[in-house]
Every structure is written in C-alpha cells, then in structure tokens.
Write a protein that binds this DNA or RNA. Structure first.
Lengths: 334, 334
DNA sequence: CTGAAAGCGCTTACAG
DNA sequence: CTGAAAGCGCTTACAG
C-alpha cells in the first residue's frame, strides 16, 4: 500500500496526500478531511526509506560504547522519552569491541539520520567536526570546544572535587583514583574520565597529598575488581578509592568484600549515581548526574539544530555529591 | 557522493558498481578490482534508504518494553554481537508508557526492517501473525504456538519448578510468588511471567502447600519493594519470596533490609541471573537464563528466515538454578 | 561479462 | 488551492 492508493481512494493527487501527511501549507479544509479519512481507512503509513530519499528520515542515531552501562541506559531512556512527543525514532549503533566509534558513526550516517549523538567517541575532534557537517551532532562524555557539534555533560572537574573533598574531610589521606585507559588517549584529553582524573590530581595536591591514579585495563566491573585486589595487597593500601564511575565502584566493593574489609575499612566513592547505587545493600556514595536530564537535553539540542541552529551549544550540568554508606572515616589504626 | 561518482571514476556503469557492492554474480575479476579501488578511493558508502527502496534495508528492528531491564540489555548485547559479522544493523523502538507494543512494531515496519524481534509484546497472537507476514519476526517472552513467527525463550515452567523445589527442600512452607500485572492479560497467558506463575501454583499444590501469588502494580523494583512491605506486615508473613525476575527480587531485598530482616530470615529467589545478582553484596539465588545466548539465537533465527525458512521455530532454552546467599533454611522459630 | 532503462515510494519546485 | 512531472540513489530484470 502506497501514497498512490490513498490518493486514488480520496480522489486527489499524490502531492495532495503528501502535503496532508506533512501538515504542509496549502490544503483546503475539505481536502484535508477527505485525505485524512482515506489514510485512516486504509491504515496507510508512509515508508521511511522513500521519505528519506527526498525529505528527512525522521531518525536520530545514537552511537555508544556499551549497552551495559546503567548511566547510558538512563540517558537513552531520557532521550526516547523526550522523543515520544515528536515524530522521531532512535536507531542505535554500538562501537566495536576495541571501542572505536568511527565505524558506528559511519553506519548511522549511511542511514541519513536527521541527527546523531555520539557518546565518548574515540575519534579526533577534526574527524568529528567533518562528520558534523553531514548531520546535526551532539557529543556526550567529552567537553570538546567544538564548532560544528554540541556537547552535553556534567561539570566533571567539580564532580571529582566533591568526591575528593568529601573523603578528605572524613579524614582520608591515602585516596586512590581508578580511571580507565581510554581516557589516556591523546585526543581524549577532554573526556569526562580524563577531566575527573585531572581534577582529582589537582585537588589532592592542593591538600598536600600525593595523587595515586590507577589505570585499569578496561572500563568494566571485572577489571576494577582485579585492579583493586592488587591495590589492597600493597604494604600500605589506600584507605579510600574514588572510582571513575559506579560500575567500577561495584568492582572495588567486590574486591573489598573478598578481602574481608568491612564498610568502615575501605571507603568507596563512585560517579553517576546509577540506579543500583541507592540500593541499601550497595549504598554507594557517588557523584550524582541525572541521566534522564542529560537524555532530554540531548534530544532538545538535536531538534534545535534540525530546526536551524548552527552555533555550537555546550551544556554543562552541575553534579551533586550523594553521601551513602560506602564512605566513612578511616579506621583509627591507620 | 553517489554510486554514479564511483561508476564514473571506475569508468563502468552504475549496475556494475551495484553488483560489486552486493557481491553479486557476473563481474569479471579486473572490473571488480577497478570498482573496488574507486570505492575505496572515494570512501563511498551506499545510502541505506535508496537501497531499501529496491532491495533490503539490512536493518533488524527490536521492539522492547523497557531499556531498564538488565536481562534485555544482555539479549540486545548478544544480538548486536552476533550481527557484527554480518551487514545488519539494529534499530530499537520502545513500547509506549502503558506497555503497548503495536505502535512500536508499526514504526519498525515503516522502516521496512529485514527482520523484527518483539519482546513480550502485548498484542493478540492474531495481530502478530498478520504483521509477521510483512517481515520475518521472532518473539521473546511469550511461548506462542505461532505459525508465522518464531519464539525463543527458556523453559519457564521448569525454571519456576526449580525455584519452588529449592525453597521447599530448604524447609520453606510459606512461599509467596511476586508476579507482574501484565501477565494477567488474557492474551498474555503464554507469557513467561504467566507460565512461571502457573508452574509455581502447580508445584506448590503438589507439595500440599497453598500458593500465594501476589500481583504487583508495575514491573519495577519500586513496585516490588512496596508490595513486599505489605507482605511483611501481615500477621503470618511468608518465609520465602520467589520474585518474577531479578529486578523485583532487588525490591524485595530492599524491603527486607528496611524491615531489619537478615539474610536468614527471609529467603529470596529471583529469575534471570542478571549481572548484579552475582555481586557478593547482593548474592541473589536465581534462575539463570543466558541473555547472551538468547540474543545470539534471535539473530540466527532471523537470518534463517531472511534466507528463506518459512516453518516456525520454537526454541526452548533450559534454565539452571544458581544458588547463592539470598536463600537459606527458614528461621527455626517459624 | 556488461550496461541502458525502468522503477521503488515518496517530496519538491513549478504551473495552472 | 491543486496536480503533473521530475528526481532522490539505488537494484533488477533484460538485452546485447
């Protein structure tokens, strides 16, 4: 069933049906009614592909490093919720096993997406600027000073400072930071993780403390678990660990549990405030950034660009510290 | 840049380029090489929309009730991983806030997806059979005896039996089952949750026990938490709760913690073996079904159908009980 | 093996 | 306000 069938039933031209479909200017009330009736009668729905050939695909593409991160799930949920009131759908392309995002972004562009969101893309700013001329684009997880694409993210420097200040004021002096390897990549210097790590180091020095940054192999709970096992075996282990994000904090907790360390013996702070962080059995102190809010903001920025905005927007969200049971003063014996 | 540009550079016809693109029959070695060189030179990539107009969209659509469920995330991950070796991409459409899937399925069909996976779709089997004539389709979360679409799922009757048997053999006699409201819907009688609930009731009666099925308002951790609060306030509360899935079990745990009940005072069994279930702080006894395996199976079935299979396949995966710390003999005072 | 031509289902200027 | 016609970038028979 095509637009032709609708036109035939309504006794009008294909162009007329197309106009009604898009709410375009220049259709008389009676014609609009007749056409709408035919559409409803037939249960007609326009083909996205045919539409994309001339107009827009009404599709937003999301490139992300992993589905497994609850924070990203929240962002996706926020975005999808925001789009419910619009005609846009979402298509998702995960980056490859090595974390390279270029393939995924290319795939999305092949779909002629009306807009593109990329999350912590591992690609040079130059390449991204070039792609952003092909489609509206907003980036998450990196605070690039871009001109062709927007960025959304929370104030990572502030977030890390909140974490360090909290642990310091509890009395901790040996605070280790767990961060991910990808953030070390030269063109990832403005990634959220890199900025958290820098802020952590800066703040530690302000307090006259020695920063101990520990880079883990991959951004997984498992990897954080193994790294923490190593940290705890040191002659003088840290009394507190500030993890790059909540998933990692979960791995730290697992290692601590395995070492038989009670909650008061190793303080742990995460980042994101993922859903599980507030569960009483986990009760993770963490830096809260609203994934839902981020998702909505992303959708809103994309629609603005689709409607014509060209100057880059750089939205910074203020994080808050969420204090829970996983952080406490260090044991007195230390 | 279009196929035209490639043809011009290689000095051949558009048809020739198209054939090379699709690895189609009837291209000489030298031409294939020349064309490929031009493609690489230009960095040409075919437009998905134009392709979908004639051939296939090389897109698989997934309709799902929520992004928040870790088991579904695993399924998605498994599917996406499986597709990495193919030319297929995935597009996702969430069902609406009331849990209706028809809109989402329609949207996916608008994209002329090459295949469709629907998860626990809340629609009549008749309607689904009709849609399945438009696109290959595989259904998750319902054991329909369909003819036009495939089903994949684990043996829910066995899973529930494993849970009840485990609790019974530990000595529990007051075992409550938490299930979701959607499963009560008449055309959802073959849904996973409905089958688990039936199997639970059947097994309880076999043991001469009274089944206590508790229907919660929505399939969320929060809802399970609130329901459990009510259950525990009863004069004679249950000594064990078998939750419809792990998310719900998490809510039960939260309520138990709030009631000050230790791990040995209320046994809890979940379903799915989500990633968090094995964390030592959670340590949830649960019925394990491999989400990754399910995702791969879904992809495989869809590709089979795309390649021509027409008889329906009904794949049943055997679940296993994963015993952890959340289940123990009931307190002797009971 | 190779290519000219038709056509997929829409939207977009452009006449009327 | 209304519609005939061209065209988006591919693929698919069909000749040669």
């Amino acid at each position: 069933m095509t637009i032709e069938d609708v036109a035939a039933l309504a006794g009008v031209s294909r162009a007329a049906v197309s106009k009604v479909l898009r709410n375009a200017y220049g259709v008389s009330e009676p014609m609009q009614q007749r056409v709408q009736a035919a559409i409803d009668d037939l249960g007609y729905r326009p083909r996205v592909a045919a539409r994309a050939m001339r107009g827009t695909s009404y599709t937003l593409g999301v490139e992300l490093p992993t589905m497994a991160n609850p924070f990203l799930q929240g962002v996706l949920g926020g975005l999808i919720g925001f789009l419910e009131a619009t005609r846009y759908s979402v298509i998702i392309a995960p980056s490859d096993a090595e974390g390279n995002s270029t393939q995924a972004i290319q795939t999305l562009l092949d779909y002629q997406v009306a807009g593109l969101v990329t999350i912590g893309a591992n690609a040079t700013a130059d390449w991204l600027e070039a792609q952003a001329t092909r489609s509206p684009m907003v980036m998450l997880g990196r605070h690039d000073e871009s001109v062709n694409y927007d960025t959304v993210g929370d104030d990572d420097a502030l977030g890390a400072r909140l974490a360090v200040d909290h642990l310091y004021s509890l009395g901790h002096r040996r605070i280790t930071h767990l961060t991910i390897g990808a953030a070390q990549h030269p063109h990832m210097s403005r990634s959220s993780h890199a900025m958290r790590a820098r802020s952590y180091r800066h703040r530690m020095r302000r307090y006259g403390l020695t920063p101990e940054t520990h880079i883990i192999a991959s951004p997984t709970e498992e990897s954080a678990y193994i790294s923490t096992l190593g940290l705890l075996e040191q002659p003088i282990p840290p009394t507190a660990i500030f993890a790059g994000h909540d998933e990692l904090a979960l791995g730290v907790m697992r290692a601590a549990a395995q070492f038989g360390l009670g909650r008061s013996e190793l303080s742990i702070v995460g980042y994101d405030d993922s859903t599980f962080a507030s569960h009483p059995l986990i009760s993770l102190t963490t830096v809260r950034q609203s994934s839902d809010e981020v998702g909505k903001e992303v959708g809103s920025l994309l629609l603005q660009r689709i409607e014509g905005r060209t100057e880059a927007a750089h939205v910074v969200i203020t994080p808050e510290l969420q204090v829970r049971g996983s952080s406490a003063p260090p044991p007195p014996t230390t």
